[in-house]
Lab assay of single mutants.
Amino acid sequence: NRTSFTQEQIEALEKEFERTHYPDVFARERLAAKIDLPEARIQVWFSNRRAKWRR
């Protein structure tokens, strides 16, 4: 089942994506704690966001 992201979560994710397309585990963990999502969801979001960026 899909995770629905809040506007705040999307903004935080997009901001980090501007900084780096490949956040390391520490950056992902920090973001996970900040926006209250599992680190695995963040990893998947970045993977999908990079795919979207390449299109």
Score class of each variant (00 low, 15 high):
N1K: 15
N1Q: 04
N1F: 10
N1L: 04
N1A: 06
N1T: 05
N1R: 04
R2A: 04
R2T: 11
R2D: 12
R2W: 11
R2M: 14
R2F: 14
T3A: 10
T3I: 12
T3E: 14
T3M: 12
S4R: 09
S4G: 09
S4T: 14
S4E: 13
S4V: 11
S4I: 10
S4N: 10
F5N: 02
F5G: 03
F5Y: 10
F5Q: 05
F5R: 04
F5V: 10
F5W: 06
T6K: 06
T6C: 04
T6R: 07
T6H: 05
T6A: 05
T6N: 10
T6I: 02
Q7K: 12
Q7R: 12
Q7G: 11
Q7C: 11
Q7M: 10
Q7A: 13
E8Y: 03
E8P: 10
E8I: 11
Q9S: 03
Q9F: 02
Q9H: 05
Q9L: 00
Q9D: 03
Q9N: 04
Q9C: 04
Q9P: 00
Q9G: 02
Q9I: 03
Q9M: 06
I10V: 08
I10S: 15
I10D: 03
I10C: 09
I10Q: 11
I10T: 14
I10W: 12
E11H: 10
E11R: 08
E11D: 12
E11F: 13
E11S: 12
E11L: 12
E11Y: 11
E11I: 11
E11T: 10
E11P: 02
A12W: 06
A12C: 11
A12Q: 15
A12T: 14
A12M: 08
A12L: 10
L13S: 00
L13Q: 00
L13E: 01
L13A: 01
L13M: 14
E14W: 01
E14V: 02
E14C: 02
E14F: 02
E14N: 04
E14A: 03
E14L: 03
K15F: 05
K15H: 11
K15N: 13
K15Y: 08
K15A: 14
E16F: 09
E16T: 10
E16C: 08
E16I: 12
E16A: 11
E16V: 09
E16W: 02
F17W: 14
F17V: 01
F17S: 01
F17L: 01
F17K: 00
F17H: 00
F17G: 01
E18L: 07
E18R: 05
E18A: 11
E18N: 10
E18D: 09
E18S: 08
E18P: 00
R19T: 08
R19Q: 14
R19N: 04
R19W: 06
T20K: 03
T20N: 11
T20Q: 08
T20H: 05
T20L: 04
T20P: 00
T20M: 06
T20C: 13
T20F: 04
H21I: 08
H21Q: 13
H21V: 05
Y22W: 07
Y22R: 05
Y22C: 09
P23F: 03
P23W: 00
P23I: 04
P23T: 02
P23R: 01
P23N: 01
P23V: 05
P23L: 07
P23H: 00
P23S: 00
P23K: 00
P23Y: 05
D24H: 01
D24G: 08
D24S: 09
D24V: 01
D24A: 03
D24E: 04
V25T: 13
V25A: 15
V25R: 12
V25F: 15
V25W: 12
V25H: 14
V25P: 08
V25K: 11
F26A: 15
F26H: 14
F26I: 12
F26P: 12
F26W: 09
F26M: 14
F26S: 15
F26L: 15
A27D: 13
A27K: 04
A27E: 12
A27Y: 05
A27V: 10
A27C: 15
A27T: 13
A27R: 11
A27W: 03
R28L: 14
R28F: 10
R28K: 08
R28G: 03
E29A: 13
E29M: 13
E29V: 09
E29N: 08
E29P: 01
E29R: 15
E29G: 13
E29K: 07
E29S: 13
E29D: 07
R30M: 08
R30K: 15
R30D: 15
R30V: 09
L31Q: 03
L31V: 03
L31G: 00
L31I: 07
L31P: 01
A32I: 04
A32V: 03
A32R: 08
A32M: 06
A32P: 02
A32S: 08
A32K: 09
A32Q: 07
A33G: 11
A33I: 12
A33K: 15
A33S: 13
A33C: 07
A33R: 11
A33M: 09
K34A: 07
K34N: 04
K34F: 11
K34I: 03
K34P: 03
K34T: 14
K34C: 08
I35S: 03
I35R: 02
I35H: 11
I35Q: 05
I35N: 05
I35Y: 13
D36W: 04
D36M: 12
D36Q: 09
D36P: 05
D36F: 03
D36Y: 06
D36E: 13
L37I: 14
L37M: 08
P38A: 11
P38K: 08
P38D: 13
P38H: 13
P38W: 04
P38S: 12
E39W: 04
E39N: 05
E39G: 10
E39I: 10
E39L: 12
E39C: 05
A40M: 08
A40P: 09
A40T: 12
A40W: 10
A40V: 11
A40Q: 12
A40K: 10
R41N: 13
R41V: 14
R41Q: 08
R41L: 14
I42N: 00
I42P: 00
I42G: 01
I42D: 01
I42A: 01
Q43D: 06
Q43V: 09
Q43F: 07
Q43C: 08
Q43W: 06
Q43H: 07
Q43E: 12
V44L: 12
V44P: 02
V44C: 09
V44Y: 08
V44K: 10
V44N: 12
V44S: 09
V44A: 12
W45Q: 00
W45F: 01
W45G: 00
W45L: 00
W45Y: 05
W45I: 00
W45H: 01
F46G: 00
F46C: 02
F46A: 00
S47F: 04
S47W: 11
S47L: 11
S47T: 10
S47R: 09
N48A: 13
N48Y: 04
N48D: 15
N48R: 07
N48Q: 13
N48H: 15
N48S: 11
N48K: 09
R49T: 08
R49M: 07
R49H: 13
R49E: 10
R49G: 01
R49Y: 04
R49F: 02
R50I: 06
R50E: 05
R50F: 04
R50D: 02
R50C: 03
A51C: 07
A51R: 08
A51M: 10
A51E: 12
K52P: 02
K52F: 07
K52R: 11
K52I: 09
K52E: 11
K52W: 09
K52Q: 12
W53E: 14
W53L: 15
W53P: 08
W53G: 07
W53A: 13
W53T: 07
R54Y: 07
R54D: 09
R54Q: 15
R54W: 08
R54H: 13
R55P: 12
R55M: 05
R55A: 15
